[in-house]
Design a protein around this nucleic acid. Structure first.
Lengths: 265, 265
DNA sequence: TTTCACAGTTGCTCCATGCGCAACTATCTT
DNA sequence: AAGATAGTTGCGCATGGAGCAACTGTGAAA
């Protein structure tokens, strides 16, 4: 008897099918990350977090009151408030002031090859673009500041990894998740390790359609006053970047490397 | 009897003298804001948040695992992981691509006066520097990207406010908190409103020792394709920036204003 | 060497936070 | 007028997590 109500009651008490039980802290950052990829409605956030709609609303409202997200009253959607995050990015960004050293090199490289040049640093198993100079070509890869790329397949990532000492490298290799690359990407630590050995021999890192099919990139690590901080590279559509072009770019990178302490090993 | 234990028990149950009872969301962002001002130990964070040491540790550990703060094992302190916040700043930063328009103007102005030039946008009742070109002088104001300045006394803030229509302005004026300026700053909406009228007449905003004693700044608003997005200005030590110098700067700003739709009204 | 101070960890208890729910309002669209 | 969707709110319960205290680990002082 009373099958109906009982079923409802059961359904109500069961934890919703999603991965619930996440801490508040995780929810906050998951929300920010979701919004960083573009505006979303409260309902979408609720779905992604696996929480009740009212819970998501309460969360979003609270973050909005703190000013870190903005609500667009017209689309009824929520978006990141980019300006509020600037104070976080400049914390010790100028302790090691790389931009004065790196920017001229990036501009020069873009000049030489006409392709986009980028500078990235490691963050949480990915490489984050801290500087980005777009290509002068019309057809180009859509990138921007703050773009993140997987460590294990991007040229920037591999350049950075190559420059680590073996001890740190082993730790890194073990903690990477090897997701998010194309089928050409290394699928695990052993294969990646092998490719990094090649990279070290070669002196520069190559990503040919590994991160995104149709995109190629060449990179070397960057050291500022001896400290490894990230990598720089040239990036563009594979159509324009032939094997020989890659070699030219690599050669040029090796030439500029001494100016930013960026040789491997 | 048992006075000792009882006293301890009482003390334990009483809410600590601080402003406790804050939500988790607020704690997360308060923590980030604290760390943005420089590295802190867990104990310091605990004190600032008014929570138990172990609570702060658990919070910091959790955020650290997400990669948004870094722990320095040597100083045993926690700091912001700046790179992780880059993805948040570029969300729609290039939807309205101001840097291509604004940067050349800022460089030109710095060239002309030898003082630092900045571009800022409103965020949560403050102005945040999104671009900053340092002065060529040795003695200069220490600023950087991501610096925030109060709306009601900084030149950038007043330039921005001046450009609002009266309706929006009234809302803004009411919600500002009029803290954080020098004694010269407007202390409330009425006085600020009066000064903004002057600013509108003049065409550019002036901050003479209002935000920080010894610092002066001149600014005008910026509109990109008709949309008010912020303000640009010249900034430097008051010692070098006389009244007549301010007038020269203002005049020059009014000259470049059309190039970035930055006239008042 | 011992001692001390402090960072970080953990098991325990207990309670307030805040979650899900559902009913409601407010808009806007059809 | 009806429907869809965003946002709000009161309620009751469960549980996340706060505080506490005892513990370990480490580095500096004595």
């Amino acid at each position: 008897m009373v099958a109906g109500p009982l079923r409802i009651a059961r359904a109500g008490r069961e934890k919703p099918p999603s991965q619930s039980g996440e801490s508040h802290v995780i929810r906050v950052f998951r929300t920010l990350e979701l919004l960083a990829s573009g505006p979303h409605t409260a309902a979408e956030i609720a779905g992604a977090l696996g929480v009740n709609r009212s819970t998501a609303l309460r969360l979003l409202t609270e973050i909005e009151q703190l000013g870190y997200v903005l609500r667009d009253p017209i689309t009824k959607s929520y978006a990141i408030a980019p300006a509020r995050f600037y104070p976080f990015i400049s914390s010790h960004a100028d302790d090691l002031d790389w931009s004065a050293v790196v920017d001229p090199v990036l501009l020069e490289l873009r000049e030489a090859f006409g392709e986009a040049t980028v500078m990235g640093v490691p963050a949480n198993g990915t490489m984050v673009y801290l500087a980005f100079f777009p290509s002068s070509h019309i057809i180009t890869v859509r990138e921007r500041l703050g773009t993140t790329r997987p460590m294990h397949c991007s040229a920037l990532g591999k350049a950075y990894l190559s420059a680590l000492d073996d001890r740190s490298l082993d730790g890194e290799l073990a903690s990477l998740n090897y997701q998010g690359g194309s089928p050409l990407a290394a699928q695990g630590p052993i294969e990646l390790r092998r490719r990094l050995e090649e990279t070290r021999k070669r002196g520069y890192a190559i990503d040919r359609n590994e991160t995104i099919d149709g995109m190629s990139c060449v990179a070397i690590p960057v050291r500022i006053s001896g400290t490894l901080i990230g990598a720089i590279g040239l990036s563009g559509p594979s159509l324009r970047i032939s094997e020989t072009r890659i070699a030219e770019m690599g050669k040029r990178l090796l030439q500029v490397a001494p100016r930013l302490g960026g040789t491997l090993r």
